[in-house]
């Protein structure tokens, strides 16, 4: 109902609105908004008791005016951030992704004291010796990795790399059987190079 009424009243409300608007805009000083009754009463009280305060407020403060004229607000672009030179001895991280797992499950040191060896290198020389025992003798390994020769001999004697055997999948025959076909798994030795005959 309200909407219909407002729609019906619109032409009357909008009558001559442009000239009325111009009239308001062209006024020298806009009319101040009406004050609350409480404020009016307070103002009245001050006027009655301390009229000098009102008088002082209405006066123009020349000193303040002069100072305000000296105040300027300027804005500048922020100063560009200067790049800090990097210390090559203490480089900052370049990647922020979480560090992955270690290859052997633990952190491997970059430097190894003499007489010791990392697991990676130990596996390497055990493997090398097993594949080519004539070339990779315990003396050579001991020299290369800075290990006591006796220890290398014992390591090579007691620690070996595994030989791998893979199950051979049975070939499918052309004959069709009744029932589900189940390929059997069977461990078969793969062909290994016979190094002993070459020597």
């Amino acid at each position: 109902m309200g909407k219909i009424l407002s729609l019906a009243m619109k032409p009357i409300r909008d009558f001559n609105f442009e000239s009325r608007a111009h009239k308001v805009i062209s006024r020298e000083k806009p009319a101040p908004a009406p004050k609350y009754k409480v404020d009016l009463l307070e103002l009245e009280r001050i006027q009655r008791d301390h009229p000098e305060i009102i008088e002082e407020n209405l006066k123009k403060d020349e000193m303040l005016n002069k100072r305000l004229k000296n105040v300027f607000v300027d804005s500048y672009d922020p100063a560009k951030l200067q790049k800090q030179p990097q210390n090559p001895n203490r480089p900052l991280p370049t990647s922020r992704t979480p560090a992955g797992d270690f290859e052997y499950g633990f952190h491997e040191p970059r430097e190894v004291p003499p007489g010791r060896v990392t697991l990676k290198n130990a596996l390497q020389f055990i493997n090398n010796h097993q594949l080519d025992p004539k070339n990779y003798t315990s003396t050579k390994i001991a020299l290369q990795y800075n290990l006591p020769e006796e220890t290398v001999k014992h390591i090579l004697m007691y620690c070996k790399i595994f030989e791998m055997y893979f199950p051979k999948e049975e070939k499918k025959t052309k004959t069709s059987f009744f029932g589900r076909y189940v390929p059997r798994k069977e461990i078969v030795r793969t062909k290994l190079e016979d190094t002993s005959s070459k020597d």
Binding site: R116, T118, L119, A122, T151, H154, Y158, K160
Partner: peptide, 21 residues
């Protein structure tokens, strides 16, 4: 590990663990 039984577990057969870093 090239050992047969518990009698073969000696200092020599465990020497790998003494040099690991």
């Amino acid at each position: 590990w090239n050992v047969g039984s518990i009698n073969d577990i000696t200092e020599e057969s465990l020497s790998l663990f003494t040099v690991l870093e």
